[in-house]
Amino acid sequence: MSRAMDGGRAVVRRPDVPLRALLPLGLFFLLALVFPFLPLGERSEYLLQIAFFTLVAGVLALSWDILARSGQVSLAHAAFYGLGAYGFALLGKVMPWFLAMPAAALIAGLISLILGAVTMRLSGMYFAIATLAFTEVVRTIIQNLPEATAGGANGLLVPALLGGNARAQYFLAFGILLFTALVSLAIRRSRLHHAFAAIRQGEETARVLGVSVVKYKLLAFFISSFLAALGGVLYAGKTFFINPLETFSLANSIAPLTTSIFGGLYTTLGPILGATVLRVAEEILHNSIKNGYLVVYGLVLMLSILWLPRGLMGLLRRGKHGGDV
């Protein structure tokens, strides 16, 4: 098979990411863009709302995946989603929404650097449990802030995004998911992709090869949490009212994790695809399962691990390696 010395042989040089790989992703965004203009009939308001939360779920899942690419499988996503929601609720009272939104995301991003720094040396289940504990600590702190400012356990009214215009809100969510996807693609085409993958697949080896692990792990945390917080802003601005128990619920950490694994880890399209399928399934099942719809996530997670390790993306691109987008 392999000759002993094939040293002089020329190598076939391929481009990093072939452009055609972007096609399905472009198709998704095209569909999402025209969705509000489709003749949806009398249920259009309801359908638009589902579509809105599907986009938010996509933001959450894809931002989680970006962190996971650096080997950090986090259960703290609810914390940053919630910090975005609370940050927006509080800042939205003193500044216009288009400033409150990035400011809230920035705060969440900066707080994530603290978590990232102290969990730097943890991995696997230790990292997962530490991030889970962190979420609970953040929730308890928010819950115990003075009621006059943060609403305590009862919750907090949030200024409605874009005056409550459902269609405008939808396009804002569309824009943020598009932004998240563009960030993800930019990472895929940059040195970050190689740094994240190297750290995930062998942290010590990566360091020996000169990868500044601390820098890249923190960068992953910041980007991921910033984007997750934008998702939290969308949620808060859409629902008018937030409380600590729901906003910081474990479900908000489980959903992006399951969605990304089901859709296809370490890709841009996978988490978005997973979010669409699971979110629609959730709506369909919502009438039969009032509480405990997470049962679907538990089942999907188990089945994906056992039989679909590369997720939906694995089904789409059977047997192909590299160049996944």
């Binding site: 499988v73 289940m125 489980i254 509480n291 997470l294 996530y297 997670l301 188990m302």
Partner: peptide, 19 residues
């Protein structure tokens, strides 16, 4: 994978009980 499998199992059992 091991971690996520048992994690999924936990979510499944907990929510089955809830339902």
């Amino acid at each position: 994978n091991q971690m996520l499998l048992t994690f999924g199992l936990g979510i499944l059992l907990q929510n089955l009980a809830l339902i």
